[in-house]
């Protein structure tokens, strides 16, 4: 099922199927697809018809519920070290066992997930906001300004990102907000490129020309025509960005440069599990690893589905 199908279904007044095969009309149909707004309702309807996207969405809801609602139902002590009950395998009282500090693994998964998801979402929002504004300005300005701004992006993209984050987090004690800012501050580059490309194609479209003929100001062009039409692509991008940020948080935590103890994210949990890999504490590795993979997978499935719905390559 392609996005064109969806489009054909939503536009009831569109002419018959003959249109779609008529070569000229086919091209037109494709343009229409790209142009048609992705309203919330049509996106939902489409999600229902796309099993993978739906799986991703449901999985995400489940994971979020597990992390944020779980602790309300399943109380654990995640602040006091309990060495008596350290490194217990899964059993009665401890469904997923305990770690080497005696924290309940299941409870810690929930707590760590909260942090990971929060940072992921925040970082993605920062990245997309900066990227959208930057890209829109570059795309609309064009010429020398565009050239300068985009070369700047190229330069920043060639700087090893992890290296920088490591230096930063070694010097400063990271909390969830600062970590989001740092990750967001590096991952807006991709969004900027994407939005610029989008604006470049949008600004020569006839409806933008039509607004210019009416005497519309640049501000109005951006706010009422360019951004709303680029919104679909931006939303898809946010989803991908969240997935990326969750992975980055995990990677940082794994390297030991994540949040300060005792706050734990999935990455640091995984790291401590790997330390005891020779002791065969499998319950310290598989559950948290599974959580990371599932979350990223769910986000990517959802983003892919949304991207198809928007009808353009957003990555």
């Amino acid at each position: 099922m392609t996005s064109r199908d969806m489009d054909a279904m939503t536009t009831a007044t569109d002419a018959a199927a003959d249109t779609a095969t008529d070569a000229a009309a086919r091209a037109e149909a494709e343009i229409t697809t790209a142009r048609n707004p992705v309203s919330a309702r049509s996106a939902l309807r489409w999600l229902r018809r796309n099993p993978l996207g739906l799986t991703g969405g449901l999985l995400l809801v489940l994971i979020a519920g597990f992390c944020f609602l779980g602790p309300l139902l399943y109380h654990t002590n995640q602040t006091e070290v309990d060495l008596v009950n350290a490194a217990l395998p899964p059993g009665p009282g401890y469904p997923l066992g305990t770690d080497t500090n005696g924290f309940d693994v299941l409870g810690r998964l929930m707590e760590g997930g909260q942090v990971s998801l929060q940072i992921g979402l925040l970082a993605a929002l920062f990245a997309t906001t900066i990227g959208t504004v930057y890209g829109a300005v570059a795309g609309l300005a064009g010429g020398v300004v565009d050239g300068f701004l985009m070369r700047l992006v190229d330069i920043m993209l060639s700087v090893p990102f992890l290296f920088f984050v490591l230096i930063l987090s070694a010097r400063f004690h990271a909390n969830a907000l600062s970590l989001s800012l740092v990750i967001g501050g590096f991952s807006w580059l991709v969004s900027a490129r994407l939005v610029r490309g989008e604006v470049l194609t949008l600004r020569v479209r006839e409806f933008v020309l039509a607004a210019r003929v009416m005497g519309a100001s640049r501000r109005r062009l951006i706010l009422t025509h360019l951004i709303p039409n680029a919104l679909g692509v931006i939303i898809v991008n946010i989803t991908f960005q969240v997935a990326d940020a969750v992975l980055v948080v995990a990677a940082l935590g794994f390297l030991g440069f994540g949040l300060t103890y005792p706050t734990a994210d999935w990455g640091s949990q995984l790291a401590s599990g790997v330390t005891y890999i020779s002791a065969d504490y499998w319950w310290l590795i598989y559950p948290v690893g599974g959580c990371i993979i599932l979350t990223v997978l769910a986000l990517n499935l959802l983003a892919d589905a949304l991207r198809d719905a928007v009808g353009r390559r957003a990555d």
Binding site: E28, L209, T224, H225, P228
Partner: peptide, 19 residues
Amino acid sequence: RTQLQMMFQDSNASLDPRM
């Protein structure tokens, strides 16, 4: 601008799809 207006070829492209 009010005095000089234009009608475009492809009304599918010249009307903002989100409005």
